[in-house]
Design a protein around this nucleic acid. Structure first.
Lengths: 194, 194
DNA sequence: ACCTGAACACCGTTCAAGT
DNA sequence: ACCTGAACACCGTTCAAGT
């Protein structure tokens, strides 16, 4: 019983891990993805080194907070592909993505940074999410509903751009869906429904 | 001759002002609008307090670098209105705006921050620039070439969103015009040219 | 009138010392 | 095995002291 493959973490370590994660969620909700890690450690009642031991980088913390959601969105694309017509599946998925990207201030920027950085612990999940959206895009393009000169990179970028701009001005936050709809409309093949 | 309204600045002060501005342009080209002001002072060979005396805030420095350009773009809108058909005037102006916003990394974000902050020395110039673009938008809408549910705030925001996303990924920087074209296409009234 | 740089209040990150 | 917090190298901003 002593050696069971991966050893169970010490009880205090586990408590710290969970406490830090809880506090981080709160602090990042308040201050955005660029929140002060010192503040997280302070409010967790934990030394700064302890935070870095459990989460060696800001992205590691973000991964713990967002990994599930990103993976969920990747799967969600497949569900939508099976249950909706091409254009509707695509726009619904993008609506959900952009709503999620609006959860924390700074998240669209973090997502783009993560895609740039092979070493980020969130890199693979982001790529996977983008690829899933890309499948919906391709499906809509094959159906002739989206212009052919749009790539998955373009599409994902534009969705993040909308998420970003919505957080730059209080007057725009409420118009996020409207802005996304405008952009998506531009991607539609010319004669779509009129 | 002693009092001629506004006194001429001391020669050393004027030299410092110009030196700081020159260096700031270089440093901001290198590091973006969030460049280290300490670094600017250091490389100007000037005390940190001297920088703050001449430019009491980061925006003051940005104003000195960008004011002309912003005012120029405002006037440019009138020229285009007089020399081009509505849709072409609008898209050309936006092309020029987005190209300018791509001059310094971080500029789209600074522009949006400036619009939010009444006290920024660039606030008025930004508002004026947006208003000028808005006039071109209205003209295109009156001509039935742009959908009616787009506001000047939406349009300016989307242009900045495209400028921002283009700097988030090297692969996108070269596709700035393409992304802008996609978005503008979405703003076009449905049956525009076939 | 203008310049200087120390001082203050913050960061992120690392790591020797403790338990 | 894990935790702690001082230490290091940076910020932006202010301001007393100098010339």
């Amino acid at each position: 019983m002593v050696e069971s493959g991966a050893r169970a973490p010490r009880a205090d370590a586990q408590r710290n891990y969970e406490r830090i994660l809880d506090v981080a969620r709160t602090v990042i909700e308040e201050q955005g993805t660029q929140a002060s890690l010192r503040d997280v450690a302070r409010r967790s009642g934990v030394g700064l080194g302890t935070l870095y031991r459990h989460f060696p980088s800001r992205d590691a913390l973000l991964e713990a907070l967002l990994r599930r959601r990103f993976d969920h969105l990747a799967e969600r694309a497949e569900v939508l592909a099976d249950s909706c017509p091409p254009w509707e599946a695509l726009t619904r998925w993008l609506d959900e993505f952009v709503a999620g990207a609006g959860r924390y201030r700074g998240l669209p920027e973090s997502i783009m940074a993560t895609l740039r950085d092979d070493d980020s612990p969130l890199h693979a999940a982001c790529l996977g999410m983008r690829r899933s959206g890309g499948a919906l895009l391709q499906r809509a393009q094959l159906a002739g509903q989206v212009r052919a000169d749009v790539t998955a990179v373009d599409l994902f970028a534009l969705a993040n751009a909308v998420g970003w701009i919505a957080e730059q001005d209080p007057a725009l936050t409420g118009r996020r869906e409207h802005l996304l709809a405008l952009v998506l409309d531009g991607l539609g093949a010319r004669p779509r429904q009129a």
